[in-house]
Nucleic acid binder design. Structure first.
Lengths: 205, 205
DNA sequence: CACCTGATGTGAACGATGTCAACATCCGAC
DNA sequence: GTCGGATGTTGACATCGTTCACATCAGGTG
């Protein structure tokens, strides 16, 4: 057996890497990137600080992994939001598109720490790709709109404006620069703007 | 005289507060908020670290002042961009609106460190209001559009979507999450989207 | 003019952090 | 069974933000 079920604390911690990343993710959840300390993560796992250096080149390396996990969580949330909407009509595609954006913003507001770490700039040498990526969720939603013939602009130029608007709302609401009590109207106004700018036949609420 | 013109290094530095803020601003310009160190700023001014605490409650207090200066610089740039456009037609108002947004994004790309500090979340107790504020520049541009009868949505709900889109583009381009070589097309696509969503009679390029 | 009070700057220290090098321990392959 | 590489520990270093006791200056009061 590689691991004892009775948690007898093997002299070589079962899977330190995993444990450190989870601890660091917890720190990020309640303190953002500044809240993630190498020493603190090690402390929580019950291991010495330098042990971490067997698994990550630096604190930033650890943060990069936390970021990847955060992006995956965000993508999962977007995915779940679109899955709730049934049907294959153009109307459904449009609704899924909006739901994707809404989920993005809501994630940012409910998990501000994780969201910050998710999109924290990081040197290319440390970049960790994530498989279910938020960008791919957005791409999929746009592909569906194109298949339904609803795109009013070339497909290639569609990702950027959509992402830009939704990300901006997430950041400004999350940082309290836009009033959080107007949260929902602002989100819907943003989604309206995206729809008006990218899709055919504007549908004003 | 309160200060000697010969810079004879009076035992009580002429205006330490100002000097520290400028030093810290320089640090922020080339390193963002993480690059701003209380000790380093003091070192550059030639003063002991603890002297700073006579003028700011903490490093975050210093950062808040740097943020205010950064926002003023951004606002000045937006102001200058609109001032370049003459005329009082609706067309001019529209152009000024776009120029405001473009200036916002360009500032973020040319001074990424300052831009980050400008919109860094900070506890209300430390918040420093700035007089020429980016928000007010945006407001003025929208007011002009309303006077020209060009707004397609209620004036009250106009700030948020516009700011959101432009800020999102600034952040995503600045952090390299959107390709910088497509910088200009992305900026224009973003401005197109804002115009389509907020203004009457879409004018597609 | 002398003095004292308050504002301003200094020095040394504390705890915390990221990082590294030398050493200890354990697993698995030969 | 033994040896080697992977994994974890100890102890140290430099740096950081912050604080406290002390030094120094400026300006108003007597």
């Amino acid at each position: 057996m590689t691991a004892n079920a009775t948690t007898s604390r093997p002299y070589h911690h079962g899977d330190l890497r995993r444990a450190l990343v989870t601890a660091a993710t917890e720190l990020a959840r309640s303190g953002g990137s500044e809240g993630v300390g190498l020493r603190e993560a090690a402390r929580r796992v019950g291991v010495s600080p330098s042990a971490a250096y067997r698994h990550f080149p630096s604190r930033d390396g650890l943060l990069a992994l936390v970021g990847s996990e955060a992006r995956e969580a965000l993508a999962a949330r977007m995915q779940a939001a679109t899955a709730e909407i049934r049907g294959s009509s153009g109307k459904a595609a449009r609704a899924r598109f909006r739901a994707t954006g809404r989920a993005y913003i809501e994630f940012a507001l409910e998990e501000p720490g994780l969201f910050e770490v998710a999109f924290r700039p990081c040197p290319p040498s440390l970049y960790v790709p994530d498989d279910p990526s938020p960008y791919e969720e957005l791409s999929a939603a746009l592909d569906a709109l194109e298949r339904a013939g609803l795109l009013a602009i070339p497909r290639l130029g569609a990702e950027a404006p959509a992402w830009v608007a939704v990300h901006g709302a997430a950041v400004l609401l999350g940082d309290g620069l836009l009033p959080r009590d107007s949260r929902d109207p602002i989100i819907e106004a943003t989604l309206d703007m995206v729809a008006d700018g990218l899709l055919r036949s504007r549908t004003r609420a």
